[in-house]
Nucleic acid binder design. Structure first.
Length: 649
DNA sequence: GTAGGGTTAG
């Protein structure tokens, strides 16, 4: 035998276990240990239980098994390690297991210590288990572990997460040995509960600030204050960490300011800072909002180049970006190439298929997901209901709506009801939609009524439209879109006077109509057009070319359709206004600047009008171009004279 | 070969 045999294998393997970094290495060593040492020597328990409990690739059940199999006397250290691992998993059944271990310790006459309580409070915080946490707090006070600053900090965190900011503050105020983490936890407690001013007050009083405190304030302003205030704080910060960039970039992306998100990222790049996956998710969301496919492609290639792990969030964001940029094929390529599909990857793909006019495939994917044993969640139901809506499949919609609770125990929320109202409304079943709203177990919100109002317009129901429209503009006076909808319903049902009344009210209340705006990306630069816009550097060319386009498509039967224009302008002017709708300018620009045969992609902030819709169909035929337009609600892929929406919109 | 906490993320 070689000289190494002199070292007893159990000790040799135990020391090897400490050195393992990767799961494969750990498993191999572990297997060898079991084979060569015939069993787990007591000394090997610590590294194995630590790895199994705490490593992301570990196995908490294995740790539990070993803990209970051990014939040596119970050691508080090992119990604490497993409780710590359980707490991290943030699932209530794991929290019960932790509690079970805690009582077992007491049964065995082993005293829990300050570590035990810290980990238990972390578990209570991650499951927001208020009752259990307060009971344990009582024990902590009795055992005077409450003097440990770690225990106190975990209590502050626990109460804050449970929304009990007063209790958290009580722990904080009672203590005289606070450290920087206590301050940060308390500031964050105020901020996450919407008490920004309290958070700021504490921030001002803080003896020393590190970047975590700044980031808490920054995050609070993004969530509950304003992104502009957050910007000001960002500019004042003595030192920014990666988290600061994450917060502000995602703040822009989530508040409908995608261009600023991209601009801030550019600034970050100029400082040679590398983005993490949270930033990439925000960039993808910004690209999705802008329809910026080239930029989105760049993000994807960056992920591949830097070998950034494609987790399920990043994967879902990529699928969403491609789908919203009109490239459903690329979206599905990402989806299929992703090995570890979870419900969010499926949901993004189902949404993407539905929104791009492939509802049948969306249903198939939903069924396919279930057959793989992945349970649909509340959001995936919204995706599949929207697929029903795109096809006008009312019965199927109700089938899914009922199966949600009956089969999967998911209670329908406002969004699901809104999908159903949209489905019924678009299918022309307006009264059924109204009855459905009346049957809701919760109070319908304005989004639901707005959905029905939209359906009233599509189906020209002036009576119901008037009733609901008036109710809506009174209950939410600042929403410009609903005034427009109502006045258009009047115009289209030949009730010009009523329409004029709506306009008057709008003027009196100083409500401005949000301008229609279209975006088109060219070589990574996003160009923006408003209706009748003359600010683009190629304006002259664009307008001239549009005139040529109109001449050509008129030969194929194009007639300017002015039905959906405001009623209070002359017929001739209507033609001019409608003639230069933003998507037409973007289209002309796209035709001038892109190679023949390439796809033209446009994103519009409001819904496309019927005149633009028929013009696009003809252009796709006459100029032999695929045109994809994403409007506020739907996708329109125009090809050879027809549209993927099949006129159902 | 006995450890622990605070900020971000669809």
């Amino acid at each position: 035998m070689p000289a190494a045999a002199a070292v007893p294998p159990s000790i040799a393997f135990t020391s090897l276990l400490y050195k393992c970094k990767a799961i494969q290495q750990f498993k191999q060593t572990h297997t060898q240990l079991i084979i060569r040492a015939l069993n787990h020597p007591p000394k090997s328990f610590r590294p194995i239980i630590s790895f199994a409990s705490l490593n992301p690739h570990g196995d908490i059940n294995y740790a539990l098994l070993l803990l209970f199999q051990s014939s040596t006397p119970a050691q508080i250290f090992l119990f604490n390690t497993v409780i710590r691992g359980l707490s991290r998993l943030s699932r209530s059944h794991y929290l019960s297991t932790s509690l079970h271990l805690f009582y077992r310790l007491i049964d065995l006459n082993v005293a829990p210590n300050n570590f035990t309580f810290t980990f238990l409070f972390q578990g209570c915080a991650s499951c927001a288990h208020f009752d259990l946490g307060t009971q344990l707090h009582g024990m902590v006070v009795k055992n005077s572990f409450a003097y440990d600053v770690f225990v106190k900090n975990s209590l502050i965190q626990f109460y804050s997460v449970c929304g009990r900011v007063r209790d958290a503050r009580w722990v904080f105020d009672e203590s005289d040995d606070l450290d920087v983490v206590s301050w940060n936890s308390m500031i964050n407690g105020h901020v996450r509960n919407g008490e920004i001013l309290e958070g700021l007050k504490l921030f001002d009083k803080m003896p020393q600030r590190n970047d975590v405190s700044w980031n808490s304030i920054l995050g609070g302003l993004v969530r509950f204050g304003s992104v502009d205030d957050a910007c000001r704080v960002f500019n004042q910060m003595p030192k920014r960490s990666l988290v600061s960039w994450v917060v502000l970039i995602s703040g822009f992306a989530q508040n409908g300011r995608p261009k600023e998100a991209l601009a801030l990222f550019r600034e970050m790049q100029s400082l040679d800072l590398e983005p993490n996956s949270a930033i990439l998710v925000s960039l993808l969301s910004a690209c999705a909002q802008l329809g910026a496919l080239d930029y989105g492609n760049w993000v994807y290639s960056y992920i591949q180049k830097k070998c950034i792990k494609l987790d399920s969030i990043l994967c879902a964001a990529l699928i969403d970006m491609y789908a919203k940029c009109g490239s459903i094929d690329l979206a599905m390529q990402v989806f299929h190439s992703y090995g570890d599909k979870d419900v969010s990857a499926y949901t993004s793909a189902i949404f993407g298929l539905a929104m791009n006019g492939h509802s049948i495939e969306a249903f198939q994917l939903f069924e396919n997901m279930k057959s793989k044993g992945i349970s649909p969640d509340s959001i995936s139901y919204i995706a599949v209901l929207s697929a029903c809506s795109h096809l006008g499949w009312v019965e199927k919609g109700f089938y899914y709506f009922h199966s949600m609770f009956d089969v999967h125990g998911i209670k329908p929320e406002l969004d699901h009801y809104a999908c159903m109202v949209d489905l019924l409304g678009r299918a022309g079943l307006l009264e059924e939609a109204e009855n459905f709203i009346a049957s809701m177990p919760m109070k319908p919100d304005n989004v639901i009524w707005g959905t029905l109002l939209g359906a009233c317009r599509v189906h020209r129901n002036a009576e119901m439209g008037q009733r609901i429209g008036n109710m809506l503009i009174e209950s939410d006076q600042n929403h410009d879109g609903r005034y427009i909808l109502l006045s258009n319903i009047y115009v289209e049902t030949l009730k010009g006077e009523n329409a004029e009344e709506v306009r008057k009210t709008m003027r009196k209340r100083k409500i401005k109509r949000a301008p229609g705006c279209s975006l088109i990306e060219l070589d990574g630069v996003v160009h923006e057009f408003l209706a009748g816009d003359r600010s683009h550097e190629k304006t002259q060319e664009i307008y001239q070319f549009w005139e040529e386009i109109v001449k050509k498509i008129k030969n194929y039967g194009y007639n300017v359709e002015t039905r959906s224009v405001m009623f209070d302008i002359e017929e001739e002017e209507k033609e001019t206004v409608i003639g230069y709708h933003s998507e037409k300018l973007a289209l002309a620009f796209g035709l001038i600047c892109t190679k023949p045969g390439s796809v033209i992609r446009i994103v519009k902030n409001i819904r496309i009008c019927s005149d633009c819709h028929s013009a696009m169909k003809l252009v796709s035929k006459v100029f032999k171009r695929k045109i994809s337009i994403r409007d506020r609600k739907h996708y329109h892929h125009f090809e050879d004279g027809s549209c993927s929406c099949l006129e159902y919109w």
